[in-house]
Amino acid sequence: MESVLAAKPEPKRRNLEQTRARILAAAADVFTRSGYAQAGLREIAVEAQVAPSLVSRYFGSKAALFEEALVHVLRTNSVFTWQKIGFGEAMARLIPERSNTNITVMLVTALADPEAKEIARRVSREHMIQPLVDWLGPPHALERAMDMFSLMTGFVIQMDGLYPETIPEHSLRWLARSLQAIVDGED
């Protein structure tokens, strides 16, 4: 009897954190590529190489998965630098790398769906705008943070759509000056 039991393979154990990270990465890719409305849990599961039921078990709903995927993208792809001196130049130089394009695309495509729009608003306020407000400080920190967020978002959308291979150098210089003026509190 012992030899029969010994021959039975051990059940494969799943690394919960690795599986969760794979699902979040797949969700970010699918939400970026397809937009919130068109993205499906099955498509995300296929990309993550897990069963669709596992996606639901980990995250519960598409909305909850979207929120966690957006926060995940913000944490893993943020290229924000906390140095105020030379901030504009540093940020403008990071734009061609397109390392945070997913953040912008996920936020913009979320606007088409009321549930995703509310999530995008909340996540951007909590994880992007408020930390920026705290960093900028007075005067008018909220207004400056919103200006910076709008400028960066608009620039990324425009350049990604119009200049997918090369962003004109003069545009990067303009962005650098504009961002630095916001950081410095200039009108």
Rank of each mutant, 00 (worst) to 15 (best):
L5P: 11
E118R: 06
E10I: 07
L5F: 14
V133W: 10
M91G: 06
V105A: 05
V105R: 03
L94H: 11
I119T: 00
G35A: 03
S78V: 10
L142R: 12
P131W: 09
Q83K: 13
R57T: 08
G60N: 04
L24W: 03
F66I: 01
A110R: 02
A120P: 00
P168G: 07
H72E: 12
M1C: 13
A7R: 12
S178K: 09
P168R: 06
L65Y: 00
R93T: 03
M106L: 14
N77K: 15
E43F: 04
Q49D: 15
P168K: 09
N100H: 07
A6P: 14
A45C: 01
Q38G: 10
E47V: 09
I182Y: 12
T32K: 09
A21M: 08
A92G: 11
V73R: 08
Y163T: 02
A64L: 11
I167W: 01
Y163P: 01
L151K: 01
S178F: 08
W82Y: 15
G40P: 01
A120I: 00
A7M: 11
D160V: 04
I95R: 05
A120Y: 00
F66Q: 01
G185C: 15
A64K: 13
I44C: 05
E115I: 04
Y58R: 03
A25T: 08
P11Q: 03
A141N: 11
L175S: 11
K8V: 14
I103A: 12
A116V: 00
R177C: 13
M148R: 02
A92K: 02
F155V: 00
K84Q: 14
A181D: 14
L136E: 10
G161F: 00
E43P: 07
V156C: 10
I95P: 05
P168S: 11
T81C: 10
A6G: 14
A48C: 04
A90T: 07
V71Y: 12
M152R: 06
T19G: 08
P131F: 11
I44G: 02
S34P: 11
S150Y: 10
